[in-house]
Deep mutational scan, measured.
Amino acid sequence: MGFKLLSKLLVYLTASIMAIASPLAFSVDSSGEYPTVSEIPVGEVRLYQIADGVWSHIATQSFDGAVYPSNGLIVRDGDELLLIDTAWGAKNTAALLAEIEKQIGLPVTRAVSTHFHDDRVGGVDVLRAAGVATYASPSTRRLAEVEGNEIPTHSLEGLSSSGDAVRFGPVELFYPGAAHSTDNLIVYVPSASVLYGGCAIYELSRTSAGNVADADLAEWPTSIERIQQHYPEAQFVIPGHGLPGGLDLLKHTTNVVKAHTNRSVVE
């Protein structure tokens, strides 16, 4: 069995187990497998329904001669939608809004960016022009300005110390501490036991640490421990890039980060 097929099978099995364990909360999309990078042309966006009122959005972007996937989250909030992270750029984010209108038909009224990198804030200006209120932590807003990236308009308070959590509509926002970046936030959907790890969490097929220019490698494993301790009931975990899975993604990420750190020390 090929690795790609095995990865998709694991996603399907995880979703099936969740649907059985929580039949009222989960209505997993039966329309197909989780979209992969090879299936999404740059400039297009796919939506994948995880649970009743919960979707991931998947886009792709060219970077350094390669094409990478990027995940975000959409959560229903009454007759409105909360968006977590842009679709990595203005063109993708405009396509995301169009796809949401086509498939869901509810307005996106608020959006949260989970850290300051372009795959999370690139497209904020498109959201703002569409009347979406954009939010991020003060740290993310400051770092985005320093980096020359787009800056969300509103500040999220109460997320300055490791372990801080605040309720934001249908989700809980959690600051686990520094990891992929010093400002990275985690998003949890309690009604569906869905954990969105953003770039602080890796997919299972990833074996290298990737972009760690703004990471705190020493603190990252401790931050992941905080996530595990705060959300032990999480059933569906979405990484910032690639295929979702279960809580095993947290341990896998820790292993990859520690291996990278150990290699760096040896070198």
Rank of each mutant, 00 (worst) to 15 (best):
G240S: 13
T36S: 08
T86D: 00
R142W: 05
D183I: 00
N211L: 09
E80C: 14
G240K: 01
D164S: 10
H57F: 08
A165K: 13
I151H: 00
R141N: 01
A213N: 14
T253I: 03
V256L: 12
A66P: 04
Y175R: 09
Q61T: 04
L250V: 03
L250T: 13
K8M: 12
E172M: 10
K102M: 13
A136M: 15
E145F: 09
G32M: 00
A259K: 01
Y135D: 01
P232L: 10
S161H: 03
S208C: 08
Y196F: 06
E39K: 08
D183M: 00
P138H: 15
S113E: 02
P35V: 09
E219L: 08
G72A: 07
L217S: 04
Q103L: 07
T86C: 14
L9T: 12
R141K: 13
T153H: 15
T254Y: 04
S137H: 15
E172R: 11
I224R: 02
N262A: 03
V42G: 08
H115D: 00
T60L: 04
F3D: 09
A218N: 02
D183R: 00
G240D: 06
E80A: 13
S38E: 07
S193L: 10
G105Y: 10
Y12D: 12
L217M: 05
P107W: 05
P190H: 00
Y202L: 08
L249K: 10
S31Q: 03
V171R: 01
I84F: 15
S27I: 05
M1D: 12
E101Y: 01
D164K: 05
A165H: 15
T114M: 00
R142A: 10
V194G: 11
T134R: 02
L243S: 09
L82G: 05
V124R: 13
P41W: 07
S193I: 03
T86Q: 00
L195V: 08
A66K: 06
A19Y: 03
Y68P: 11
S223T: 11
L5A: 12
R141A: 12
G131R: 05
F168I: 15
A98D: 00
R141T: 02
G177Q: 02
A165L: 11
V75M: 10
G78L: 08
F236A: 05
L156W: 15
T253E: 02
I74F: 04
I224D: 13
V75A: 05
G53K: 08
N71S: 05
A144W: 15
G131H: 09
P221V: 12
V54N: 15
V67N: 09
K102T: 13
R167N: 08
W88A: 13
D85V: 00
P232I: 11
L143V: 07
A87I: 00
Q103K: 09
N184F: 00
K102C: 08
I224Q: 10
V11Q: 04
Y12A: 12
A136C: 02
L83A: 14
G122N: 03
A234N: 12
I74M: 06
L243G: 12
D118P: 12
I224V: 04
G89A: 11
S161Y: 04
H154W: 10
G197Y: 01
L82V: 15
G177S: 04
N92C: 09
T109W: 13
A209P: 14
S139D: 15
G2P: 05
V75Y: 08
N262S: 09
V132Y: 13
L173K: 00
D216A: 08
N262Q: 07
A144F: 07
D29N: 09
Q229C: 14
E157Y: 15
I186A: 11
G169D: 11
A111D: 11
D183A: 08
F168Y: 09
A200N: 02
V194H: 01
V194E: 03
T182C: 11
E145D: 01
G210T: 07
T253A: 03
I186H: 00
S155E: 03
R226A: 08
L250I: 01
E101S: 04
I20D: 03
S139K: 10
P41N: 15
E172Y: 10
S139Y: 00
S38R: 09
S139H: 01
I100H: 00
V132N: 15
A192C: 06
S30K: 02
A95Y: 04
T182G: 11
R110E: 14
V11E: 05
H180K: 02
I100V: 11
L156F: 10
F168D: 13
F63A: 05
S16K: 04
S7V: 11
S70C: 04
S223I: 10
S16H: 15
R226H: 10
E99I: 12
I84D: 00
T86H: 00
E80N: 15
E150R: 15
F116A: 07
L24R: 04
V42Y: 05
G240T: 03
R110I: 04
S38I: 14
D77H: 03
D183G: 09
F3R: 06
T207K: 07
F3H: 08
A66G: 05
V194K: 07
R167A: 07
G210K: 12
V75N: 14
K91L: 10
G177T: 01
V121G: 06
D52E: 05
R76F: 02
A179H: 00
I84H: 02
T86P: 06
F63P: 01
D64G: 07
S193C: 10
L13V: 07
D248K: 03
I74P: 03
S70L: 11
Q235S: 07
V54D: 03
I227C: 12
E39R: 07
G89W: 02
D79C: 13
F168N: 10
Q235L: 13
M1N: 07
L83F: 04
V189D: 12
S70G: 08
D183H: 11
G89R: 09
P221E: 13
A144C: 04
L83Q: 10
E101I: 06
T253D: 05
G245E: 05
K4A: 14
L82S: 12
A165R: 10
G148Q: 12
A234T: 15
S264C: 09
E99N: 12
V54G: 10
I227T: 04
I20A: 05
R142T: 04
A200T: 12
I104Y: 15
L143N: 07
E80R: 13
L83T: 14
S181M: 02
R263L: 04
P152G: 14
E150M: 15
P244T: 12
R263V: 03
S30R: 07
A25K: 13
N71M: 02
T93W: 00
Y188N: 12
R46G: 08
C199F: 04
I104W: 09
G2K: 09
V212P: 09
H230T: 03
W55E: 06
A136R: 04
L5H: 01
L24P: 04
Y48S: 08
A133I: 00
G246D: 13
I58W: 03
V189Y: 14
A144E: 15
S139Q: 06
F3L: 09
E225M: 14
A25G: 08
V166D: 06
I74Y: 01
Q49A: 10
S208G: 12
I224S: 08
Y48V: 07
Y231R: 11
D79S: 14
G158F: 04
Y68I: 02
I40G: 08
Y48M: 02
R110K: 05
H154F: 15
A192M: 13
V132Q: 15
I84K: 00
L96K: 00
N184W: 01
A87F: 00
A111F: 02
S27R: 05
P170R: 11
L5N: 14
G245Y: 15
D183W: 14
G65E: 03
V54F: 15
G210I: 15
Y48R: 03
L159W: 10
A234M: 03
L156I: 14
V124K: 12
G177C: 05
G43A: 07
T182L: 05
G242V: 04
S191H: 08
T109V: 11
E225S: 03
L159T: 10
G123D: 05
P176D: 01
A25D: 03
T253H: 10
T222C: 12
L82R: 10
S38M: 10
P152C: 11
V257E: 10
F168K: 04
T134M: 12
F63K: 05
D248C: 06
L10P: 03
I58L: 03
E44S: 06
D214Q: 09
W220R: 09
Y202E: 10
S27V: 06
L143F: 14
R263N: 15
G242A: 11
N211E: 07
G148W: 05
R141E: 07
V132W: 09
H252Q: 14
A178Y: 01
F63D: 03
D216H: 07
L156N: 02
L9I: 14
E150I: 00
A200S: 13
D118A: 15
S38V: 04
A259S: 02
A94I: 10
T253N: 12
D77I: 05
D118F: 15
